[in-house]
């Protein structure tokens, strides 16, 4: 705690600054525990209160429950659809497209990002073209992918892969470019060869930022596949939402929306978990935000 005290009148312009330790400094453990409790409380309370409010509004008739089904109705419908086996084919179709498209896009993105991040010539050759393609809305590429790959899974996978690719490519390239010169010099001083420089200096330095890119791409891949399934698919969660909206089955539509949200969270958390395991030396982004 920092406090400024002005001297009484007539004692000149001199000021005394008093700095006293705050609770976090006096008792770091209990302050951290309080902070964790507050964060956990907020994380649980805000959604619970909002859902409770939604439920009450629906039960009390403040909103038309036929147009905005209550949370309990959505959960009950989701449960029924799951038990009937009607939900799983759509969940599986979307999950399969997201995972395969993500792996494909990430693989190509990392590879090209790595080459462009380490070779000035390749970067000069490809960067303007890729920059131009980057700004094209990926959903606008769907008709082209339909022409290229026909009516099967190909267009959906290509769309997810293309979306993921750009996020991963940019983050990989910039991550390699951003490895501090001091690290490289240290590697050189220790006599590292090209492979050793890559394995022990560049890769550990770039990996945390690459993984940030993949985590953003994971969220966007769910977003883009759902939009794509709206347009050209006969199964998947996007199709479920679009189709139930077209059929005016609001209850099913909300089940689809909740499933997409859950899928997005799970997929992003899996990527985050894998990222932490791959880069134990990197600070957790949540901790970084906290500090």
């Amino acid at each position: 705690m920092t406090e400024q005290r002005a001297l009484p009148k007539g004692q000149g312009e001199e000021r005394i600054i008093v700095r006293e330790p705050g609770p976090a400094e006096r008792s770091p453990a209990s302050a951290a525990a309080r902070r964790r409790t507050l964060e956990l409380g907020l994380a649980i309370t805000v959604p619970v209160v909002l859902i409770g409010l939604w439920q009450t509004a629906s039960d009390q008739g403040w909103i038309d429950a036929r147009l905005y089904p209550s949370p309990t109705t959505i959960v009950a419908n989701g449960w029924d659809l799951a038990l009937d086996g009607k939900l799983w084919p759509d969940v599986w179709a979307t999950t399969r497209r997201v995972v395969l498209g993500f792996l494909l896009g990430t693989g190509i993105g990392v590879l090209l990002g790595l080459v462009m991040g380490t070779s000035r010539t390749v970067r000069a050759a490809l960067e303007p073209l890729l920059d131009a393609l980057y700004v094209v809305p990926k959903l606008a590429l769907l008709p082209i992918f339909l022409n290229m790959f026909g009516l099967g899974e190909g267009p959906q996978l290509a769309l997810v892969a293309a979306t993921v690719f750009f996020f991963v490519w940019i983050s990989t390239m910039s991550a390699f470019l951003a490895v501090p010169e001091g690290y490289r010099e240290a590697g050189t001083v220790f006599g590292a060869g090209r492979w050793q420089m890559f394995r022990h200096v560049l890769l550990p330095g770039a990996l945390p930022q690459i993984l940030v890119g993949t985590r953003i791409a994971a969220g966007v891949s769910v977003l883009v596949i759902v939009a794509s399934e709206f347009v050209a698919a006969t199964e998947g969660l996007g199709y479920l939402i679009f189709n139930s909206r077209a059929l005016f089955q609001n209850d099913v539509m909300y089940v689809g929306i909740v499933c997409v949200a859950v899928l997005g969270v799970i997929f992003s958390e899996i990527i985050r978990f894998l990222g932490r395991r791959l880069t134990p030396w990197a600070p957790d982004d949540r901790d970084r935000v906290r500090t």
Partner: peptide
């Protein structure tokens, strides 16, 4: 006030606004 109070109040107003005029 805790930070979530205004958030919840805003959401409550939004829910009330979009729910008006049932079918």
């Amino acid at each position: 006030l805790p930070v979530f109070v205004p958030i919840i109040a805003t959401m409550a107003l939004a829910v009330g606004a979009c729910g008006g005029g049932g079918a």
